[in-house]
C-alpha cells in the first residue's frame, strides 16, 4: 500500500463517524445514515484513485448533502434509535423533531456549520449557495430551533 492509499484509508477511517452523524441529523435514521456514509466514502475512494478528487472533505460532505437533495421527501419523519442503546430518550426525539421541522436546506446549513464545523463560505460552496444565503438560513434556523426547544422543553 503506497502513501496515497494510506492517507486515503486514514481519511476514510476518520471521516466515516462524522459523515454518519451528519447523515443521521439530516435523515433521522441511523441505518440510513450508515448506508449513505458508506456509499459516499466508497465513491470518494474510486474517484480519488482516478485522480478526480481535489478536496476530499468538500467531495464527501458535498456528495452527502446532494444525496439528501436527490432523495424523495417524506411527510412524516420517523426517528429510529439503535438497538440496545438509549437512543430513544425523549430529549433526543425532541431535538431531532425540531431539526426536522426546518426546511432541508436550512437543516443542512445548521449541520454543516455547527456539527461539521465548516466556515460560511465553505458551507456556501458545498450547498451551492452564496454566503448571504447561508447566513440567513443559519440565523433563521437557530432562532427556530431555540423557539421550538423552549416550547417543547
Amino acid at each position: 500500500m503506497d502513501s496515497d492509499d494510506e492517507a486515503l484509508r486514514e481519511f476514510v477511517t476518520k471521516r466515516y463517524p462524522r459523515l454518519r452523524r451528519s447523515a443521521f441529523l439530516m435523515g433521522g435514521d441511523w441505518s440510513q445514515a450508515d448506508e449513505l456514509a458508506r456509499d459516499t466514502l466508497a465513491r470518494l475512494i474510486t474517484d480519488s484513485q482516478r485522480g478526480v478528487v481535489a478536496d476530499p472533505d468538500a467531495y464527501a460532505f458535498g456528495e452527502l448533502m446532494a444525496a439528501f437533495r436527490r432523495r424523495p421527501g417524506r411527510r412524516e419523519h420517523i426517528f429510529v434509535a439503535a438497538p440496545d442503546c438509549p437512543g430513544a430518550q425523549p430529549r433526543t426525539v425532541l431535538i431531532l423533531d425540531a431539526l426536522h421541522r426546518l426546511a432541508p436546506r436550512c437543516r443542512a446549513v445548521l449541520v454543516l456549520r455547527h456539527v461539521d464545523g465548516f466556515a460560511v463560505d465553505e458551507t456556501a460552496d458545498l450547498l451551492g449557495m452564496d454566503d448571504a444565503q447561508v447566513e440567513r438560513y443559519e440565523a433563521a434556523g437557530l432562532a427556530a430551533m431555540e423557539t421550538m426547544l423552549a416550547t417543547s422543553g
Binding site: W30, A81, L142
Partner: peptide, 18 residues
C-alpha cells in the same frame, strides 16, 4: 443564542458502533 453543537451532541447518545 442557542449553542446548537452542544444541543445536538445529546442526539448522538444512542449512536451505534462502527
Amino acid at each position: 443564542m442557542i449553542e446548537l453543537g452542544r444541543v445536538l451532541d445529546d442526539v448522538f447518545d444512542g449512536e451505534p458502533g462502527a
